[in-house]
Amino acid sequence: MWLIFIWLRDSKASKPVIAVVAIIWGVGGVGLLFVISNWVVEQLPMKWMRFLQPYVFVGPALAILSWYLAIPTFRTLVLSLYDAAGVNFVGLDNYIFAFTDASMLESFRNNSLWLVVGTSMSVILGLLIAVLADRSKFETIAKSLIFLPMAISFVGAGVIWRFVYFYKPAGQQQIGLLNAIVTAFGGDPVGWLTVRPWNNFLLIIILIWLQTGFAMVLLSAALKGVPSELMEAARMDGATEIQIFFNIIIPYIQGTIVSVSTTILIATLKIFDIVFVMTNGLYGTEVMASQQYKQMFKFQHFGHGSAVAIVLLVAVIPVMVYNLKQFREREAF
């Protein structure tokens, strides 16, 4: 196995050949690991086999989870108390930096904006579209179109929206859609991505564009679960459609709204690519995850980078606690 790894790393063979060998080597290797370790355990006396076999099944998963998530959490916590290179203990200095530095404060402000505006707009629009589609004859195609951006990467979305926000000086023909509209109505073209603080909203629109489809799919499924007798009865009693929406539908799908919002909230908290591609954090658009990347790779400051990561972690702890509580209440385990 190791020899193949060395060969793969240093080989000059043609690209597709390497790719195929690498894929077979990687996936096959993991499969082989299970087969061999299980075979070894099955050769042991019954008592030992009984004891060890579960760990053949869950062991690899636990090992990788420990290495990649569980232990790094503590290591990052420790690193956040050390200096740039992770050598000297500096106490809470990195956190003081995180909560006082101007660019960090800016990214906290922006991140809150992302969380509030991005999440609420995605959910509200998702719900609106789900309700409309439910009453329309074009439900499937409309939902597909809204859902489509889910398959597009943040980088790809960045390219698409650069084309919308693109700016050319006044007098030239605009090739960005937004400026073309503005100038068609006789306005002056605007360098959208450089206008503080509104450029943040323009970046958030990209997130909304990507996430609304997700909210729509889940909310639409929940809407279908609202019993129609309930709504018919309300209509009989003379309730308007708007009353039905707020007094029957919303309470009925509340659980889904909460879980959709949480999922989008967590995704938004970690938002990185959109900012990195569109503005690289310039013009007052920095967010936490882009700050963390910058601290880590541009300034090579592991202490600062770790502190920001810990702040991100602390922000999701309420959700984690909620998940664990839900889990404990389930009787399946």
Binding site: P72, L79, V308, A309, L312
Partner: peptide, 25 residues
Amino acid sequence: FPGRKIFFVIVVALLVVPLQIALIP
């Protein structure tokens, strides 16, 4: 197996941990 429950609780806890936490280590 011993530890089954606690290990699964850890999996549930890790569901929302941001991957940023792991990058440096």
